[in-house]
């Protein structure tokens, strides 16, 4: 198919528009001036060094990572069992309602959930705690993991499980040797998305953080208030690179899903 030059130009312009801010930040993270400046002058890795050595930045980053990993694992586990459970609901209305409830965190405005979590968590003393963040982020991330897993489960041929049972596998063996390996790409993709949702999450985190327990986005917010140090740009660029790597993993997994069809040829 031939694409006209105009369309090509527009496409590149849109791409540039989307990518440019991140690229600019990346540029600025290497400048020698002690404040964010464009165009940057000089070249240094100092801001990265600072980021990776500063105790506050480190504790916020580790806190965010731990939350994101735990939330991703829980979200994937909940999504897997929910996807299986909803498959078996025969009443289509009930099924759709349950799905909507599960997906509702994606349509509720962030600020609304943030307020809700804040009110609830401050009442039960969960603000600023690891558990509080995990609970909130799991709720926010589960819809994404669910969408990944349920779409593959939908295309997945359940007769493979019947076949495994018929060939002598117990239910548990069937799950371990057939179900899990076949669904694993979507489970991993779902977990990665959940991880990103949690790691990236700023609005709710802003509300439920306290002086002790704060996530990386919250720490970044605070720093913007005090200073506009290029270390922020270094942190942002590090996050961007990490995200790109994870998206590459997702792409590889998606290709594998296509290569090994979970359904038999018609």
């Amino acid at each position: 198919m031939k694409v006209s030059r105009l369309v090509q130009c527009i496409a590149w312009a849109v791409l540039a528009f989307l990518v440019l801010p991140s690229l600019l930040i990346a540029f600025m993270s290497f400048g020698t001036d002690p404040y964010l400046r464009f165009p940057p002058r000089g070249f240094t890795f100092d801001w990265y060094r600072l980021y990776f050595s500063d105790a506050d930045w480190q504790s916020a980053t580790l806190f965010s990572l731990k939350i994101a990993i735990v939330a991703a694992v829980i979200a994937a586990a909940i999504s897997l069992s929910t996807a299986f459970g909803l498959e078996r609901v025969s009443n289509p209305r009930l099924k759709e309602s349950l799905r909507l409830v599960l997906l509702s965190p994606t349509v509720v405005p962030g600020i609304v959930s943030a307020l809700a979590f804040y009110k609830l968590f401050s009442a039960v003393g969960l603000t600023g705690t690891f558990l509080g963040f995990v609970v909130a982020h799991t709720i926010l991330a589960t819809p994404f993991a669910y969408l990944c897993i349920s779409s593959q489960l939908h295309a997945y041929d359940r007769t493979l499980e019947t076949a495994a049972r018929g060939l002598g596998a117990t239910r548990l063996q069937t799950f371990i040797h057939v179900t899990l390996p076949l669904l694993s790409p979507s489970i991993v993709i779902g977990a990665i998305f959940s991880f990103l949702v949690s790691f990236d999450e700023a609005v709710v985190s802003f509300f439920i953080s306290d002086t002790q327990g704060k996530t990386l986005p919250r720490k970044m917010f605070e720093d913007i208030d005090f200073s506009v140090s290029p270390v922020l740009a270094a942190v942002a660029t590090t996050i961007t690179v990490g995200t790109i790597l994870l998206l590459a993993v997702i792409t590889i997994l998606q290709n594998r899903m296509k290569r090994i069809p979970s359904q038999q040829k018609e």
Binding site: D157, T159, L160, T162, A164, I260, P261, Q263, E266
Partner: peptide, 9 residues
Amino acid sequence: FQKYALFPH
């Protein structure tokens, strides 16, 4: 089985 049901992985 009808469509063989071989384990694709």
